[in-house]
Amino acid sequence: MTLRNISGFAAVALVAVGFAAPAAMAKPAGGAAAVKMIDTDNDGTVDMKEVEAVASATFDRLEKDSDGTLDAKELKGRLSKAGVQSADPDSDGTLDKKEYLAAVGERFKMADPDGDGTLDAKELNSKAGKALLALIK
């Protein structure tokens, strides 16, 4: 067994027991992979309800200081400064869960050019789809 095979085996073993790379280091999911991860009803598309469930869990995971909001540090670049300002109607410099989910909703609409209320892999691979995925990863 070569060192390369051992390294590959170790990586597989670590992933298998839940020691995957941190999200910040992981590549963004492609459209098809994202559909598989988000599509709880297995219809081949994702709807706003499915995206909101993932976004809500992402908010909870990012919200480290237990103040009920995400600041720029907690958002880790998911929104630009202008994006935060746009999503922050009370102008307090942070996003509460309602504001965060509203930003997710806006990105969902931008990624849904046909307006059918669902996103397929092609739509998630678009620039707007990738922006949505970046916000909920």
Rank of each mutant, 00 (worst) to 15 (best):
M25D: 10
A26Q: 15
A26E: 13
K27W: 08
A29N: 05
A29P: 00
A29K: 13
G30I: 02
G30F: 04
G30T: 10
G30D: 12
G30C: 02
G31K: 12
G31Y: 07
G31P: 09
G31D: 07
A32G: 02
A33E: 14
A33T: 14
V35D: 02
V35H: 00
K36V: 01
M37K: 15
M37V: 13
M37D: 08
M37Q: 13
M37L: 11
I38C: 00
I38D: 00
D39P: 09
D39S: 05
T40W: 05
T40M: 08
T40D: 10
T40K: 14
T40F: 12
D41H: 05
N42R: 14
N42Q: 13
D43C: 04
D43V: 05
T45G: 02
T45F: 09
V46G: 03
D47M: 02
D47I: 03
M48I: 07
K49I: 08
K49F: 08
E50R: 13
V51D: 04
V51Q: 11
E52Q: 07
E52K: 15
A53P: 03
A53Y: 09
V54Q: 05
A55S: 09
A55R: 07
A55M: 07
A55G: 02
T58D: 06
F59G: 01
D60L: 13
D60N: 10
R61D: 08
L62P: 00
L62F: 14
L62D: 11
L62H: 06
L62E: 09
E63I: 01
E63S: 14
E63G: 07
K64S: 05
D65T: 15
D65P: 01
S66N: 15
D67C: 04
D67T: 06
D67Y: 06
D67G: 02
